[in-house]
Design a protein around this nucleic acid. Structure first.
Lengths: 118, 118
DNA sequence: GCAATAACTCACTATATAATTAGTAACTAC
DNA sequence: GTAGTTACTAATTATATAGTGAGTTATTGC
């Protein structure tokens, strides 16, 4: 975590947008690469680190760990740790997480109905 | 527009995600800074370049022009140009644009109901 | 002829985000 | 005692995205 430059216009503009509307915060979170796919993996019961890693093939450990932490921090998933060897950690959606998945599916249907280019 | 590095893992991973699900394309578009605010401005009738620029105060001409072009390219807004001097251009939401705004409002209500930290 | 206007465009710099590579603990099977 | 296992972490490099500052066009008002 290199830390953001708090005095930059870049930072301040983002802060302004997030203050104006929480949607902007949500979109920053959701647009982190892999994050929605990780959510859907867990929703479908693929609920362990290595399982998700396998399904989202080229994802790195680093990014996966970071995204799981983000999702947990925001109350969208639960993390259950079993002190075995080798270690076992199981993830599951919270109620909020389920709710979000429903909204994302709607957005997904909408995006299917149009062709997007950036 | 400096062009993306098409052979990088960075690019290829993004492409993989966008292939897997159009939601990922949609999220890239929506997470461009200012874009949802611009959409909401137009929805509320603030439909000219300088008007939007005024409302989203620290936004630059450069970014605003880019975002309007993106929204138009994706069929979310219409651009009507009047050949006067000084020039006059009026933007409006398309049907798709209206539809998207409805979905975004739902997502916004959801994000209001939780506290997000990144 | 000079300043002001709206709606842009361009070249450049600053910043944020993702990927790469290596390393960790605490065991078990061989 | 060496390799293999899971779920991570850390330092560094590569890439994408945002912001800065200036320039453009074609006209009207002074």
């Amino acid at each position: 975590m290199a830390g953001r430059k708090v005095n930059s216009t870049n930072y301040q503009n983002q802060a302004l947008l997030e203050n104006k509307c929480s949607l902007n915060e949500m979109l920053v979170l959701l647009s982190r690469r892999w994050i929605t796919e990780i959510l859907f993996c867990i929703q479908e019961g693929n609920n362990r680190f290595s399982g998700i890693k396998g399904e989202l093939a080229p994802i790195t450990d680093h990014i996966l760990a970071d995204r799981l932490k983000l999702l947990e921090k925001n109350g969208l998933i639960n993390r259950q740790h079993f002190p075995e060897v080798p270690p076992k950690v199981v993830y599951s959606l919270t109620e909020k997480g389920e709710e979000l998945c429903v909204l994302l599916e709607k957005l997904c249907n909408f995006s299917d109905s149009m062709s997007i280019c950036c």
